[in-house]
């Protein structure tokens, strides 16, 4: 049986108390939300925090506010809460879809939105047991000196594998970070670094408290995920797209994000910009897809062949845009995801 290493356990009841604990422990403590990322990592000794600070006793982190002016989502909402809540429709569809295809039903009952956003980056050479990593003499991200994906590289290229972050980026989400010294809000698109090790701008003393969304009245959004099986698997490519259309079907505003194709979710700004003022037809969709796919830089550190992942990126952007246009994409979706 894989066992956790020893740790100190803290269970604050308020955000303030939590902030105080993190402040005191500095890098020695890690917040524990659903635990579905952190605990496996601990069992494999990828992450060995001295202190685990549970967030589940802080009630304010589980609130949902959904109104005309926008939404505020507590970081400890579970993905099942989000996937199963009919209020997450219309503009928010992409988020509900993304949440509903994370991992498995049991994991979605445990996993939180905050944990999903803060998910550690992943790599075939890193998400392995201590013994396995020892047999490759470890790698840059943890305990080693070489990146086995790109042995010349001084940078880790571990992959951002969160499903909800690209969806939330397409929805223009912001996140609120709270620490003892205060709080700050930033666009989710700015939360991540292009670095597999130092992948997130959240400081160790900060708690991600909320996801904040402006009103998405009039927007349509969708999320497409590539993985081998109908469940369990992390995304190895994903596309989130959101758009607002004029009455005659011209794109007034659009946002596209590509997930699991780099150390962070990527905003396909150029493609989105191109679509503005254009209708979604075969030609514009194809052009936007080509432009958006250009930014994807998959490497050989996930499931599937990297060149193939690169080559199907445009196809996935196409699926997303066609769905926004109103095409019936259910057969394609069924073939791909096996979900009804």
């Amino acid at each position: 049986m894989m066992r956790l290493p020893l740790f100190e356990f803290r269970a604050p009841r308020t955000l303030e108390e939590a902030a105080r604990i993190l402040d005191g422990e500095k890098t020695n403590a890690m917040p524990l939300a659903g635990g579905t990322d952190l605990l496996p990592n601990m069992k494999r000794r990828q992450q060995v925090p001295r202190t685990l600070m549970s967030l589940r006793h802080i009630q304010s982190l589980s609130h949902v506010e959904l109104g005309h002016s926008g939404a505020r989502l507590g970081a400890c909402l579970t993905l099942a809460d989000i996937a199963g809540d009919p209020r997450f429709r219309n503009g928010l569809t992409a988020l509900a879809q993304a949440a509903s295809v994370v991992a498995t039903p049991q994991i979605r009952n445990m996993a939180t939105l905050g944990g999903n956003i803060c998910l550690d980056t992943r790599c075939n050479y890193y998400d392995q047991s201590y013994e396995w990593r020892k047999s490759i003499n470890f790698c840059l991200k943890k305990d080693g000196t070489t990146c086995w994906v790109a042995p010349g590289s001084s940078k880790c290229m571990a992959v951002s594998s969160t499903d909800t972050a690209p969806a939330l980026m397409a929805l223009g989400a912001r996140v609120r970070l709270v620490s003892r010294s205060g709080e700050r809000e930033m666009p989710l698109s700015e939360l991540y670094n292009n670095d597999g090790i130092d992948y997130i701008k959240r400081r160790p003393d900060e708690i991600l408290a909320e996801v904040v969304l402006d009103s998405l009245q009039g927007w349509k959004s969708t999320y497409w995920k590539l993985r081998r099986r109908g469940s369990f698997d992390f995304p190895v490519l994903s596309v989130a797209a959101a758009a607002r259309f004029s009455k005659n079907g011209v794109v007034e505003d659009a946002r596209i994000a590509v997930g699991s194709a780099a150390c962070r979710p990527l905003v396909a700004a150029e493609a989105a910009e191109y679509l503005q003022g254009r209708p979604l037809n075969q030609e514009t969709i194809a052009e936007a897809a080509t432009v958006a796919a250009r930014i994807a830089k998959p490497l050989d550190n996930t499931d599937f062949d990297m060149t193939w992942r690169k080559r199907v990126t445009a196809e996935f952007v196409t699926y997303a845009l066609r769905e926004l246009r109103g095409d019936d994409m259910r057969p394609v979706n069924l073939l791909l995801t096996r979900h009804q």
Binding site: N124, D127, Q128, W132, I136, R229, G230, F232, D233, D303
Partner: peptide, 18 residues
């Protein structure tokens, strides 16, 4: 080094109910 690419039940792909 010659290692099993990914000795886990997640990355060894066994079909799910879906």
């Amino acid at each position: 080094a010659l290692v099993h690419k990914f000795p886990s039940i997640l990355e060894y792909k066994s079909p799910t109910s879906l």
